[in-house]
Design a protein around this nucleic acid. Sequence first.
DNA 1: GCACAGTACTTGACTAATCAATTATTAATC
DNA 2: GATTAATAATTGATTAGTCAAGTACTGTGC
Lengths: 143, 143
Amino acid sequence: MAKIDTNLNFVLALSKAQATINRRLDGQLGAHGLSFSDFVTLHHLAHANGEKLRRIDLAEKLGVTASGITRMLAPMEKTGLVSREATGHDARISYVVLAPGGRRVYEESLKTASYIAGELLPLSKASQIEKLTETLHQINGNL
Amino acid sequence: MAKIDTNLNFVLALSKAQATINRRLDGQLGAHGLSFSDFVTLHHLAHANGEKLRRIDLAEKLGVTASGITRMLAPMEKTGLVSREATGHDARISYVVLAPGGRRVYEESLKTASYIAGELLPLSKASQIEKLTETLHQINGNL
DNA sequence: GCACAGTACTTGACTAATCAATTATTAATC
DNA sequence: GATTAATAATTGATTAGTCAAGTACTGTGC
């Protein structure tokens, strides 16, 4: 029933792959008490200038809404993975800061995440992964 | 603080791209009364043998659990997009069948989905898209 | 041909995230 | 410098989906 649509096929495959990856990483990161989203949050904080980010920028990096960020950070603050810091010059902003506990857990869980990521990707494509990542970044609008 | 991990970067970019795509398609397909998941369901049914699938196979194709399928199909049955059909030889199985309403909505929404998919993907990278799709299929275990 | 393991599906309880509205603050325009 | 628009974050209500348990049925091995 259908002419093949390359773009649509891509989108379908991507969606499925994300489900696979998410499930797999969620499962394994559970050993560190993290969801995949938690891990990604720590990752971005660990690589950010001063190990802190505005909540809105974190939302953008994760591809969720500001509201989602508020809700996901609440338990992470309680367990000491991240903390909160105000800015001097703009009282609307509250930074999310990588807390010591978060830095430790990130370093531990990075090994796991990196290992699983390697397991998920087909070895045969190793040399292409960087180009493919670049294409994905273009979808995200980060030229 | 970090050595660059190619595989992990890929996984992060993928996750973000999925969020972008999902949001965009959800928004536009809303005009047809569909979520992206609804659309993907109709798509798989439309291309399946006899326009029907076992619920468990549909779950596998979408990358969700059987439980998720039950919950997502309930409203689609009510609005006449899909219907339910028993098998003669295995009373555990109930097929999901593309209903006439579903076929019509699928055909209409296909144009939208295909158009948006094209908009999201960087034109310059047409050949890369096919490579990337292949890689994604490998992640999904469909060699 | 019976017991037991496995499969297909559903359900209750819960979690993660959305949207729309709200609060608080800052920036822009006249 | 007062008014209006825009931005950052949070909250209430809702939705989509998870997991674990349960139901109903089928296939296997003795």
